[in-house]
């Protein structure tokens, strides 16, 4: 029971971070290997606001969000768009964007090490116990989970019930057809990339309330987000959420029962199972 709830709480946050990656890959067609670093940037910012200004992460994430949004928008416009234009095929773009974002991830890590140093960092926020169904859990985890659900829910509603959200989903289904019906694909891609980065960074802000982090931990989150997105099916929000919860559960289970040092191995285990048995994702149909 303990594992179940802790796992779901963790999975909720993972869902938020993976939704960010899903937007970037599903809509903007950028396989962003620097996604985890953006998450760490969000975590660092929350940490900084908390230690310098005693500002609650629940408030500071909303101050960070516009900055991260702008940063990611600029990255798309000036770094990735040239690659999109240069690429002759989807495969070419995939290779180029993987290499470019991989380089960016090193730059981000390098910058964070330069600014904050390479040490672990954490802070104490809402660390009081909270009782759910007879067991106690750290309040920061519960609050982070609720906030992640709230933001994820708003994103879901926005994608499904507004015109720009609809346009974004159209681009994700078929870039060319979306262009033909008058959607500005380039603008939508930039928007999706920026929004995705922001969502991920907000997730990072929440994660930092209960987890110790350091500048180079981003790659682990990138891996997890990638695995979740593939497991859930690219562009499938429902699948992403389910996959994130499953990963949260599995990771918590392995960390509790076997060893906390094996979280990535847990993610890989799931990855391998998906690759062998359902490469099209949980709810995906076989690609034709």
């Amino acid at each position: 029971m303990d594992i179940l709830i802790t796992g779901l709480l963790l999975g909720g946050i993972y869902a938020l971070m993976a939704m960010g990656l899903s937007l970037q890959y599903g809509v903007a067609r950028i396989m962003n290997l620097a996604n985890g670093e953006m998450l760490v940037v969000g975590a660092f910012a929350a940490f900084w606001f908390f230690t310098v200004a005693q500002l609650s992460p629940l408030i500071s994430v909303f101050l960070i969000a516009p900055v991260i949004f702008a940063l990611n928008w600029l990255i798309y416009q000036f770094m990735l768009l040239p690659l999109v234009k240069r690429a002759k095929s989807q495969g070419q773009l995939e290779v180029d964007s993987i290499l470019a974002t991989f380089g960016m991830s090193f730059i981000l890590v390098g910058l964070m090490v330069a600014v904050f140093g390479g040490d672990y960092f954490n802070y104490t926020f809402l660390a009081e116990p909270m009782e759910i169904l007879g067991n106690t859990y750290a309040a920061n985890r519960v609050v982070a989970f609720l906030m992640a659900m709230l933001i994820g829910g708003l994103l879901y509603l926005w994608l499904n019930h507004t015109r720009p959200g609809m346009a974004m989903r159209a681009v994700s289904v078929d870039t060319e057809a979306a262009g033909l019906v008058g959607i500005d694909v380039q603008r939508m891609s930039a928007l999706a990339f920026a929004l995705g980065g922001t969502v991920t960074a907000i997730g990072g802000g929440f994660i930092s309330t209960f987890q110790t982090m350091d500048a180079s931990i981003g790659i682990l989150f990138t891996m997890k987000a990638l695995i979740i997105v593939i497991m859930g099916g690219v562009g499938d929000i429902r699948g992403t959420i389910v996959a994130a919860l499953v990963l949260g559960l599995l990771e918590t289970f392995i960390a509790t029962v076997i060893d906390p040092g094996l979280t990535l191995a847990a993610a890989y285990l799931m990855f391998i199972l998906v690759l062998l048995f359902r490469p099209q994702g949980f709810f995906g149909r076989k690609p034709s």
Partner: peptide, 17 residues
Amino acid sequence: PNQTLLLMGVAFLLIVY
């Protein structure tokens, strides 16, 4: 010695672009 990661990333982007 402290900026190796950063410079490595820059070198990488220079080559890719």
